[in-house]
Amino acid sequence: MKSYIEERAIELANYIIESKSTVRAAAKKFGISKSTVHKDVTDRLLQINPTLAEAAKAVLDTNKAERHIRGGLATKAKYKGQA
Rank of each mutant, 00 (worst) to 15 (best):
L60T: 00
D40A: 02
I17T: 08
E11L: 09
Y4V: 07
L46F: 06
A25S: 10
I69G: 06
T51E: 15
P50Y: 02
L73E: 09
N49Q: 14
A56K: 00
S21I: 03
K39E: 09
E54Y: 08
I5T: 08
I48H: 00
R67Y: 08
R67C: 10
R8Y: 04
G31K: 10
I5H: 12
M1R: 13
S3T: 08
V41H: 00
D61K: 06
K29A: 03
A56T: 01
V37F: 02
K76P: 11
T42S: 05
A83P: 11
K80F: 12
A83E: 12
H68P: 04
K20E: 12
A74T: 11
S3Y: 10
D61M: 11
K57M: 02
D43Y: 08
K39L: 05
Y79A: 09
A27C: 04
A55L: 14
D40P: 04
T75H: 09
Y15N: 03
L73C: 11
H38R: 07
A58K: 15
S35I: 13
I69Q: 11
I17P: 00
E54I: 04
E7Y: 05
I17Y: 03
T75L: 15
K57S: 01
A27T: 03
L46I: 13
D61R: 10
L45S: 02
Q82F: 10
Q82C: 15
V37T: 01
V37Y: 00
V37K: 01
K57Y: 01
I5G: 04
I10D: 03
Q47E: 06
I16V: 05
G81C: 15
Q47C: 14
I32Q: 01
S33T: 11
K64L: 07
G81N: 08
R8T: 02
V59W: 01
S21H: 02
K28Y: 15
G81R: 08
G72L: 12
A53V: 03
Y79R: 08
L12P: 01
S3R: 14
T75G: 07
G81E: 10
G71I: 11
E11V: 04
R70N: 09
R70T: 06
A65L: 14
A25D: 14
T62I: 15
E6N: 12
R8V: 03
E18M: 10
I69L: 08
A27Q: 04
Y79Q: 13
A26V: 04
A77S: 14
A58T: 06
T22Q: 03
A27R: 01
R24Q: 14
T22N: 03
R8I: 03
E7R: 10
I69T: 11
T36R: 07
N14R: 06
S19A: 13
I16G: 01
S19Q: 09
M1L: 12
I16C: 03
L45Q: 01
R24S: 06
I48Y: 00
R44C: 10
E6R: 05
E6W: 05
G71N: 13
A26D: 07
K39H: 11
A25Q: 14
